[in-house]
Design a protein around this nucleic acid. Structure first.
Length: 822
DNA sequence: CTCTCCCGCCACCCG
DNA sequence: CGGGTGGCGGGAGAG
């Protein structure tokens, strides 16, 4: 092995190792090779090296913690925390052997791990200091990578540099504000126009290439022309210097594009072009390429934050990589201005819905609570309950709720810490028991009710989730599982679970627009003129028929393909899917005026997962509610809780599970990805096919999916497809089996224990038919846990716990001696 | 093949 | 000027 002497913290990498390797020439950087031959390089080994390299302090700590984190072995995590201590190399090796795989090393995963270390909404009291060295060591990566993460986080003000190797963790508290500002800036920069401009150009270009050369006739060489903007100068940022090119700035701009975009979808090429344009760089191809690379880096981080999700925009010419904003959209509250769809559409409905919504919300909460912390939740929502009327609820709802949460959070955190030790023990029980997924099938919901339901719900959801839950969940991060994991230590215990859930709940905000579109479509048309329409139009240009066509077929394929896997629990493949996981969907739209009034409700949960245990009493009411309108949102708390335990999936950790968006399942090709269609089209496509559209929303960690059936309809058969989500398959699949048609929420709660799971909620359509979930459940459940993301984490988590202190407070002392402060 | 994007060299820049 | 930062782009894994 190689750990030779630690070479300071710098380059500890494998690369060095080659040096050691006698046989091979230094020239080729063959890391793997070395490993094989020498065998030294297992992650563990690597880690050790790193550790050794690290400052002594760190080293010590780490050792104590036993943190060797085999990165990929989730298993240990699951299995046990027992292994907390240093994992034997031998054992570890096994896992490790499987190579780390590129995915495991991805920035996104790394970011999740990073985020998992800190609470999304730290208490003001706890000031967390991030030591780059420490983080790098603990995450087992070189510092350079940490910079990438931190820079983007910094652009969103989640962190800020305090000193030399030190960053302060702020969490998401100010995220809404930051986003609002960025949005404003973006508007000022006229990014929207720029985007449109480029998009258009692109289309033209493409046509040209295709031979259509409709307009200008650009030639390839002229491609670059695209880059240039004909438009006058925007107030673009100042000249750019190195700084302007910084990842930080790029990140902000990228975010601005989303915020300004009506569709909330930004294709990388367009973003790259705009950035280049702005920077006034000469648009050359290599620049473009570089830009795109950076955008991917940024996107990975944002994805980990559950702010965006990868999608593909399908155009006639083909698919283009793009990202969709799934973070909060309404933070600004000026819906009208912004043209919120919701606002414009059916204003009055919203109100009505509220009432129902509330119900739902409660239920959800209740449910939620059940898995998570029952009591706590009860209290919480109880309050909400008390106040039936919207006005009230908002007040109480938010505040009260949040407060509660806050406290809970604190408790939770504490618990975790305390438990860290306990975990070991706990770990054993980790496994969750029941897992029935919930059968509920959501799809139909949309159809009828969509309108109303949507708006309000979204709204509510938004508020609640956002406000309250989110924080919680966010702690762990967007990553969902990771976060959870981390926080919840091993998860295992019930107790831990609870908290975990909270923490883990992923809340995803779905851009309302899209949903709306969908909904609208489903129903038929929404109100005319609404913005949605306009959006659609615009979008439609991009996305077009292609999608439609694809859709139907896609579904089939998916079903086919995926099915097989469905069973499989762990499925390796799943790794990439974001979808897996419990999800929660939140739809944010907010009603315009009501901001204040906004009912807070909800969060639904999506429960799909097996949470049966929950007493769902709450549900029934839901049915009623449903009947009328559909609530559209689901939140899922999913807590993924702890659970992660087992997983062993080896590899997969992969992507961030978090975010999902509305997507139609992509055709086979895309596994994890979804394709976004323009609203209208989708529907069409879908409708005919009757397949449900799957919206994947995942929560943070776990993802959930929403299936939307085309108009109400969902034939049972359709469910088939959907049911298994392709991606999810294993994991979360909510199967909607036949049920789907009626979807409802269903979820029987049974084992709270599982609680961890996310549940998916589903909604409902009117017919409350009982749904039976297919067998899915348990298996799936397990799978859930295994979500990729989680996998990786486990490790962390363990360490985390140890480190948990970081979070809390202690960390700072760690500071690097060397750098010493000052 | 294309899409992603990891890796890490090496330039900046700050103290 | 040494070390923290982080731009940048080669090149390779994944699909």
């Amino acid at each position: 092995m190689a750990p030779k002497t630690p070479i300071k913290n710098e380059p500890i990498d494998l690369s060095k190792q080659k040096i050691f390797t006698p046989e091979r020439n230094p020239i080729t950087p063959v890391k793997l090779v070395d490993r094989q031959q020498t065998e030294p390089w297992t992650p563990t080994a690597n880690l050790k090296m790193l550790i050794s390299a690290a400052s002594p302090d760190i080293r010590d700590r780490e050792k104590k913690k036993g943190l060797f984190r085999p990165i990929e072995n989730k298993e240990d995590a699951l299995t046990g925390s027992l292994q907390l201590d240093v994992v034997g190399d031998s054992a570890v090796d096994e896992f490790e052997k499987q190579r780390p795989s590129r995915k495991q090393k991805s920035l996104g995963l790394l970011c999740q791990k990073f985020l998992a270390r800190y609470p999304s909404y730290p208490l003001s009291t706890e000031k967390t200091t991030i030591s780059l060295d420490e983080v790098a060591v603990s995450l087992g990566v070189e510092r350079r990578r940490i910079y990438d993460i931190v820079n983007v986080l910094e652009s969103l003000h989640l962190v800020s540099r305090v000193a030399k190797n030190q960053y302060g963790w702020h969490g998401r508290h100010s995220l809404p504000k930051t986003l609002r500002n960025l949005q404003r800036l973006g508007e000022e920069q006229k990014y929207e126009e720029q985007m449109a401009h480029f998009q258009q150009k692109e289309l033209d270009l493409m046509d040209y290439k295709l031979g259509e050369h409709k307009k200008d006739g650009y030639s390839d060489s002229q491609d670059q022309q695209l880059l240039d903007f004909s438009e006058p100068d925007y107030p673009s940022s100042s000249a750019n210097s190195r700084k302007d090119k910084s990842l930080r700035i790029m990140s902000q701009k990228f975010v601005m594009l989303f915020l300004v975009s009506k569709t909330k979808i930004v294709t990388l090429d367009v973003a790259a072009k705009i950035l280049i344009e702005e920077s006034q760089d000469t648009p050359d191809h290599s620049k473009f390429k570089t830009k795109v690379r950076r955008l991917y880096d940024i996107a990975n981080v944002l994805t980990s934050l559950a702010l965006i999700k990868k999608v593909h925009v399908t155009e006639e010419r083909g698919r283009k990589p793009a990202f969709k904003w799934i973070g909060p959209v309404d933070f600004s509250s000026s819906d009208e201005e912004r043209g919120d769809v919701s606002a414009s559409v059916l204003p009055e409905l919203k109100r009505e819905t509220y009432g129902q919504t509330q119900v739902c919300a409660k239920q959800r909460l209740a449910r939620h609570g059940s898995f998570n912390t029952v009591q706590a939740s009860e209290r919480i929502w109880r309050k909400a309950d008390s106040e039936p009327s919207s006005p009230c609820r908002e007040a109480q709802g938010s505040d009260g709720y949040s407060l509660e949460i806050g406290s809970l959070a604190a408790v939770y955190r504490q618990k975790i810490e305390d438990n860290s030790q306990a975990k070991a023990c706990a770990s054993k029980r980790v496994t969750p028991p029941s897992s029935s997924l919930d059968p509920a099938a959501p799809s139909p919901v949309l159809s009828a009710d969509s309108e109303y339901g949507v708006t309000p719900l979204a709204h509510q959801v938004f508020s609640v989730a956002h406000t309250d839950l989110q924080p919680f969940s966010m702690q762990n991060g967007p990553n969902g599982q990771v976060g959870v994991v981390s926080r919840a230590p091993a998860a295992s215990d019930v107790e831990s679970l609870q908290p975990a859930l909270l923490a883990g709940q992923p809340l995803v905000y779905v851009p309302s627009t899209s949903l709306f579109m969908l909904y609208g479509r489903l129903q038929e048309q929404l109100s005319p003129g609404s913005r949605a329409t306009s959006e659609r139009d615009s979008r439609s240009s991009e996305v077009t028929a292609a999608e439609q066509s694809s859709t139907p077929s896609v579904q089939k394929r998916l079903s086919e393909e995926r099915k097989p896997q469905e069973e499989e629990p762990a499925t390796k493949r799943q790794s990439r899917d974001y979808e897996d996981g419990p999800l929660s969907l939140v739809i944010p739209k907010k009603p315009s005026d009501s901001t204040d009034m906004a009912p807070p409700e909800t969060v639904g949960d999506g429960g799909s997962a097996s949470l049966d245990d929950l007493p769902r009493n709450g549900e029934r009411p839901a049915a009623e509610a449903l009947s009328g309108r559909a609530p559209s949102a689901w939140g899922n708390p999913s807590g993924r809780t702890e659970t992660e335990k087992p997983s062993e999936e080896k590899d997969s950790p992969t992507e961030p599970p978090l975010l999902q968006y509305v997507c139609v399942q992509s055709p086979a090709g895309l596994n994890g990805f979804s394709v976004l269609f323009s609203g209208s089209q989708i529907l069409h496509a879908v409708g005919p096919s009757s397949g449900p559209v799957n919206l994947g929303l995942s929560g943070l960690g776990s993802a959930a999916h929403l299936l939307i059936g085309p108009a109400a309809m969902l034939n049972p058969k359709s469910s088939t497809l959907s049911s298994t989500d392709p991606q999810l398959q294993g994991p979360l699949s909510l199967n909607l089996s036949p049920v789907m048609s009626r979807a409802h929420a269903i979820i029987q709660p049974e084992s709270p224990a599982c609680g961890g799971h996310p549940v998916s909620a589903v909604q409902l359509q009117q017919s409350p038919a009982p749904v039976t979930p297919k067998s899915i459940r348990r298996t799936h459940r397990e799978t859930f846990f295994k979500t990729p993301g989680s996998l990786g984490d486990p490790v962390l988590r363990r360490r985390e716990r140890n480190q948990s202190r970081n979070t809390s407070s202690a960390q700072r002392r760690l500071e690097i001696p060397s750098s010493g402060a000052d």
